[in-house]
Structures are given as structure tokens and as C-alpha cells.
Amino acid sequence: MPNRARFIVQIILLFLITLHARPPAAHEAPPSVRAELPLLTAPAISREGYFTLQLQSLPTVPLVVEYSTDPQFTQVTAQYPWFADFSQMTLSGFPNGQHYFRLAQAGVDGSAPNQVGPVVMVRVQHYPLNLAIGLLCFGGAMFGLLVVMIVRGHWSRSRYE
């Protein structure tokens, strides 16, 4: 067999090996046994209204993150289902204030969670609006200047040529 053909066959075989690669456990059915919830952690402060919640160990059962604006969780404002067996979740679009989260084991067929974890708090404090608008105006002025520079250069060179 010529060397080039052998090389191509070897590369194809190398690729075929990847077909046997094992994905994370997402395709496997989760164990139905009651398991210890992983520990949830969160950044103390966010200036942009988005942040990432982390698990200290990989999940082995279906999980949800419960959200409330009240540390006692007298009312659960929202539930965020945990995606597959990843160790983190990114949430966004939160206004200024203190936001509380806790991990819960997802209830079967929509029933209430039968196990909840400790509460973590994220304080969202957006950048001052004045600063943002100032930067926007400054950026706009700079951009206008650049456009004028390019258009003038293009026209004057075209005319000259």
C-alpha cells in the first residue's frame, strides 16, 4: 500500500476510535435512590446582573435551583432546572438587590422537591448609569471621529487619483 493511502487509512481509523468515546453520564438514567445533594456556591457580588452558580461535586440525581428574594424562602420565585451533569449554571438578567438560591432534588412528575440544600446569596449591584452613559457618549464621539477620518481620507485620495 502506498504511504499516502496508509496515512489516510490510519487517520480515518483514529477518528473512528472517537466514536467509542464515552460521553458524560447524561445519557444514562439517573439513579432513583435518594442521594446527598452537592454543595452550591455563588459569587458574593455581581456588577452585571449575571453570575455562575457552582457545585462542589458533580450531580448524580436531577436537580433544580430554587430562587427567592427572601432568605427564608417563604415564597419560591423561580426554579431553574440543572442541565445534565455539568458542575455549574449561569444565570442572567437580575436587577439590583440581594438574591437567594438553594439546591433541591427535582421532584418526580412535577411534585415538590423532597430535599433542599443550604441557601447562598448573590448581591447584584449594577454599575452607575451615569458612568455607562458617559462611556456610551464618549465612545460614540470617538467612533464619529474615526468615520469622518476614513471618509475624508477615501474621498480626498479618490479625487487626487
Partner: peptide
């Protein structure tokens, strides 16, 4: 008027 988004724009 999302501050971080306005800062991001230009």
C-alpha cells in the same frame, strides 16, 4: 438602560 450593556456597546 442596562449599564454593563451600554458600557459594552462602543
Amino acid at each position: 438602560l442596562f449599564p454593563a450593556a451600554l458600557m459594552f456597546l462602543f
